[in-house]
């Protein structure tokens, strides 16, 4: 496995995503999601909103890295806020 060149931060990152998928699966088994129309222009399920949050987070970070020469923590904070908003009202 050495060729995969693991590092602690990326391991945590993948662990977090894997864990989220697990939680989403269990949640889905317990109470199936309902397709609903929120702030977003399309009707979404819980999984959709989670995916949109992740993708937005990625692009917010890219934007920050490309335009601002500063630590990424503000971008992360914004991403978390956006994600929370999307999951709640998206």
């Amino acid at each position: 496995m050495s060729w995969m060149a693991w590092t602690l931060p990326t391991a945590i990152f993948f662990g977090a995503i894997g864990f989220s998928l697990l939680v989403l699966t269990l949640w889905e088994l317990k109470s199936p999601t309902i397709l609903r129309k929120g702030l977003l222009p399309i009707a979404t399920t819980r999984g959709d909103r989670f995916f949109i949050s992740l993708l937005s987070a990625a692009f917010i970070h890219l934007l920050w890295l490309g335009l601002v020469d500063a630590p990424v923590y503000p971008a992360t904070a914004v991403s978390v806020l956006v994600a929370a908003g999307l999951l709640k009202w998206g």
């Binding site: 050495s2 060729w3 995969m4 590092t7 931060p9 990152f13 993948f14």
Partner: peptide
């Protein structure tokens, strides 16, 4: 996953790499 791992490191060879 491997690509993401590589993307945050400076890899000289697989025993000498820096985050």
């Amino acid at each position: 996953m491997t690509v993401i791992n590589y993307s945050v490191q400076d890899i000289l060879d697989f025993n000498t790499r820096f985050f």
